[in-house]
Amino acid sequence: MMLGTVLLAACLLCGRCLGESLARALGIDGDVGGVGFAMVALMLGTAVVRRCGLDSAAFRAGLGYWAGMYIPIVVAMAATQNVVAALRGGWVAVLAGGVAVFVAFAAVPLLAGRPTESVGSMGE
């Protein structure tokens, strides 16, 4: 059980560290892609654990618990947003935010290409 959680913690710290280092190298404050690096590390880490024969139901539970807590955590995040400030920002904020969202939605099919190009997709 602990192995899964330890692997997760180690991957998050490694990713964060890489993200912070990359940000410093670029001369900005903060973190560039830390969570992204951590996810790639976890994908590789779980592959190594499987290869070494350490994969077990308990290992998967150690990871799965946190993956399963994901939606409640997102609900907590939503419940602690400053929604009042977002609405008080006035028309400029609503317009600029809204336009950015709608154009990005419209651009998804343009950049994502045909569904059949994806690995493992069912096709149409």
Partner: peptide, 28 residues
Amino acid sequence: LAILGGATLRDFAIVATASSSRFEELIV
């Protein structure tokens, strides 16, 4: 709720969801 929905736990849980994703998809 600020701790439960804060950046630390959020990132921890997001990274955990990657354990079921496929590396090949990423490369493609």
